[in-house]
Design a protein around this nucleic acid. Structure first.
Length: 696
DNA sequence: AGCACGCCGACT
DNA sequence: GTCGGCGTGCTC
């Protein structure tokens, strides 16, 4: 045979979006006439459909299957670089997912529908030219003068940027309270990376927080070089921004957790703001932690990563104590004004406000002393912020005559009474019905709300303070687009005296005229079964305290509690995060929890009550039978804290090891067995492994 | 996961 | 007689 005329097709190994559950390795072989560089995006046939795939490498020709299908189309895009592929390869292995599934999920979905003609049209519409090195440097020069601690933090980034590639770069943990000037440090650090012609990735926990940070970056560096990436974008927007990052025309990429897997060919710096925030851990799909992947990505790319927080995660704090991270402290409130002083109100000692006394009366939402303080603020034209972490009118309805309660027929949960539209709503499955006029069981007319949500708080407070202008901010009042901005504008304009809301009001937004912040019932989180609950509570309360007027000198934070002597509140009153972290770390060590142990959770659910626990039991036995690893603890299956949701029974089992590597090895052996086990448990609806779960 | 094929109940 | 229920099986 004549080699020069025979079309010698190349064999390519392509990552395709086949979930690991399909039993395929994730890489499938295709042929193509020409060599294609790894990272090339291709359209390939898979079964009866065509899918987007990523060329991973040239397969070994000696083990080629006989009949390979040809690549259908090669997308006219620069290939994804080796650093990106290494990151995705690690992430897929670490979180026990298929490589193709993981890699394709990181690409904008709109990319899958585009053909090359459309792609060419999109690429032609180039955004404005990237700012030159000189412009980046001069922008930094216009920036405000930094205080000494801010300068030290920026210098740490500068030093790491100047290191030779192979030198170790410990992640930088920027510790500073609200108002200490973390954002200014990010901006200066970004200017340094931009001045070297590199891209900067900035991660924030929530979509709500992107606009204000985007505005700060745009004002400093120009809007045209910024691309945002978050789930609030339309598919075409998301594609446009992703392409700008991939092409390098966007030099600042700002987004939520999904942005950590963006293609950034000239990455020079990663910033993770509010690094402790639980939103960085995905609760679906591969359940990856964007903060952990950011640290890994920076390490692989040999670039600095800066994690910022007033209340760092215990993992990061521990890493700093161990010398693996470098802690940088911003001790002062740069914007002026001290943190508000904390006043702990012992609820058992407090007088009930007038008008809500007497037998059978609902417990008062606020003690008389707090009510007086709110009224004083109102008369001075200052604002108060009331935090109640429960939306709706009342968490449950109850019949006074029989035992009926507003249970959800599909979940092990109560349906919440929403008075505004007179519905009972399940916050787990969404099941909604009109409120019954009488008890569905016995016909009794006397069905009463038990407990209090923000809706009821607003109503009761209005009765106690008839002249106050009260507004409410929670998921129910901000569901429409633009309504959050509208309501925030009203608060800023001084049209509101008292703002009532869920934790939404504690995050990110500055309220200059607020001089009183009160947490009305935070005790629930003190005794939650979630081992991270105290950490979240401390962060939430300190963050709420930070909302109060940075300018005004007499801001106060009040806290209503039945546990006035609880160590968490005492540490909070002293603004003493290190003491709190030390006590939490001691508890974690004693209990064998992260960061002293590494966890993986196997979750399963089934429509019938028996299949999920039976599958997990078999999985636990299969795990215990695995060879070798000594340092692994296999725990028995237990029901999920909310045992049934949307007619599915949810169970989970925990695997724990003091060594991350040992856990990883055992998971890699275990997962193939789970695929086989799944086939033996027919009624199983779904199962998933959650590596480094946020709660157990 | 998709998307087929493949056999058993209520409808035009 | 068909439309469609989701059980089972495959995708280089």
């Amino acid at each position: 045979m004549n080699e020069s005329t025979a079309p010698s097709a190349r064999r390519l190994r392509v990552a395709v979006p086949t979930p690991q559950h399909a039993g395929l390795a994730g890489l499938l072989d295709y042929e193509h006439p020409d060599a294609l560089p790894p990272g090339s995006l291709v359209r390939v046939p898979l079964g009866r459909r065509q899918v987007l795939g990523i060329v991973w490498d040239d397969g070994d020709p000696s083990e080629a299957p006989p009949d390979l299908k040809p690549v259908a189309e090669v997308l006219a895009l620069p290939p994804l670089d080796g650093a990106w592929r290494a990151l995705l390869g690690f992430a897929a292995a670490y979180y026990q997912r298929g490589l193709g599934e993981m890699a394709l999920a990181a690409l904008p979905t709109a990319l899958q529908q585009l053909d090359n003609a459309q792609l060419a049209r999109r690429l032609k519409r180039k955004p404005a030219a990237p700012v030159t090195r000189e412009a980046g440097a001069s922008a930094a020069a216009q920036a405000p003068v930094l205080n000494a601690s801010q300068q030290a933090a920026v210098a740490a980034v500068q030093a790491q940027l100047a290191l030779p590639p192979q030198a170790p770069r410990p992640p930088l943990l920027l510790w500073g309270v609200t108002g200490s000037g973390k954002t200014e440090v990010y901006l200066h650090a970004a200017a340094l990376a931009l001045a070297e012609g590199r891209q900067v990735l900035v991660l924030v926990p929530e979509i709500n927080l992107t606009p204000q940070l985007e505005a700060r970056f745009a004002a400093r560096f120009g809007a045209e070089r910024i691309a945002t990436l978050h789930s609030g974008l339309t598919p075409p927007q998301r594609l446009r921004h992703w392409l700008a990052a991939h092409a390098g025309t966007a030099t600042i990429v700002l987004g939520t957790r999904l942005a950590v897997l963006a293609s950034l060919p000239r990455l020079g710096l990663i910033v993770v703001d509010e690094e402790h925030d639980a939103s960085f851990k995905a609760q679906d799909g591969a359940r990856q932690s964007a903060r952990d992947l950011a640290v890994l990505r920076a390490h692989q790319a040999r670039v600095p990563v800066m994690l910022g927080s007033a209340t760092p995660s215990l993992e990061s704090w521990h890493n700093a104590q161990q010398g693996r991270y470098l802690r940088l402290d911003l001790p002062d409130r740069a914007a002026g004004g001290a943190l508000p002083s904390l006043r702990v109100l012992d609820l058992s000692q407090q007088q009930r406000p007038k008008g809500l006394r007497g037998p059978g009366a609902t417990p008062p939402p606020v003690a008389q002393a707090l009510l007086d303080a709110i009224e004083q603020r109102r008369q001075r034209g200052e604002q108060s912020l009331l935090l109640l972490n429960r939306r709706g009118y009342a968490p449950v309805l109850h019949c006074g005559a029989c035992a009926w309660k507003s249970a959800c027929p599909h979940c092990t949960a109560w349906r919440v009474f929403h008075k505004a539209d007179r519905t009972l709503r399940c916050h787990h499955c969404g099941f909604t019905e009109p409120v019954p006029r009488a008890c569905p069981d016995c016909g009794n007319q006397d069905i009463a709300p038990i407990g209090r949500g923000t809706e009821r708080l607003e109503e009761q407070l209005q009765a106690l303070l008839p002249e106050a202008r009260i507004a409410r901010l929670d998921a129910d009042t901000t569901s429409q687009v633009g309504s959050l901005e509208r309501q925030l504008a009203a608060v800023h304009a001084g049209e509101v005296d008292v703002l009532v809301g869920t934790q939404m009001i504690a995050k990110g937004h500055d309220f200059q005229r607020v001089t009183l912040v009160a947490a009305l019932n935070p005790d629930g989180l003190l005794f939650s079964s979630d081992f991270r609950a105290p950490e979240r509570l401390f962060a939430l309360l300190l963050q709420a305290a930070g909302r109060a007027g940075r300018a005004g000198g007499r801001a106060e934070m009040w806290l209503q509690t039945d546990q006035p002597k609880h160590p968490l509140y005492l540490a909070l009153a002293r603004h003493d995060y290190p003491a709190f972290a030390a006590s939490q770390l001691a508890e974690r060590e004693a209990a064998g929890l992260p960061p002293y142990a590494h966890l993986a959770l196997l979750r399963a659910d089934s429509k019938d009550p028996d299949t999920a626990p039976a599958f997990l039991q078999a999985a636990a036995e299969a795990g215990q039978a695995l060879s070798g690893e000594q340092a692994i603890a296999w725990y028995p299956p237990v029901p999920h804290p909310v045992a049934r949701v949307a007619d599915h029974w949810r169970w989970q089992m925990l695997v724990e090891s003091p060594q991350r590597a040992a856990l990883q090895r055992v998971l890699a052996q275990w997962v193939p067995e789970l695929h086989a086990l799944r086939r033996a448990h027919k009624g199983l609806a779904r199962w998933a492994i959650d590596v480094d779960p946020s709660a157990i």
